[in-house]
Amino acid sequence: MIDVSSLSIAIGKFELRDVSFNVPEGAYGMLMGQTGSGKTTLIEALIGLKKTRAHSRIVIAGRDVTRLPPAERNIGYVPQDGALFSTMTVRGHLAFALDVRRAPAAYIEQRVAELANQLRIEHLLERMPEGLSGGERQRVVLGRALSFHPRVLLLDEPLSALDEDTRNGMYEVLRQVRKSTGVTVLHVTHSFAEAEALADCRYVLKDGKIELQ
């Protein structure tokens, strides 16, 4: 489902060279590696935020997206810091990608209700991001990323800022999301506990190379 071959990126002195890996359809892939090993850079390249060098090839759901702008890749993206829009309500977040895709209002309303129910954030719909708890924020970020039914979900250390209890709750949410949507996930982390709890397959990024474990 996520097929990456010969991915090369150079940013200043930092370099990823000829990275190749594959996350099978419906799998929960866990990308691990030390701080500074290039995990976030790799995710950004998949999203389309970083320019890749020639010969790099990124195939998402059978479609070569290497040269496509981020908007056309249809990847659900959960960034490290959540990056909620401070001027939008939770409802606005869940509806955002659907608005951009010009979905009919009735459909958007139905989808927002569905997501809110699934992630148990119905009571937060009219709230602004400011003042949401860490767990609530992550649910909203997840809902925003899932709203347009992407077939691939990229999570960049989504749980690193959460306390132990909230994190355990989020494991459950992620498992349930995966079960109900069948989405293929690539989840970046440096926590073995997270990998233990969620992963089907683990990839380790080290010295600019990826090893499947």
Binding site: I47, A71, N74, I75, G76, F85, F96, V100, R144
Partner: peptide, 23 residues
């Protein structure tokens, strides 16, 4: 990062600028 998320969510650069960054 907010603008980058907007791009990933399907915005053109212009849309991301006016819908997310400017607000």
């Amino acid at each position: 990062r907010c603008e980058q998320v907007a791009l990933a969510l399907g915005c053109s650069r212009r849309q991301a600028f006016f819908k997310v960054t400017l607000p």
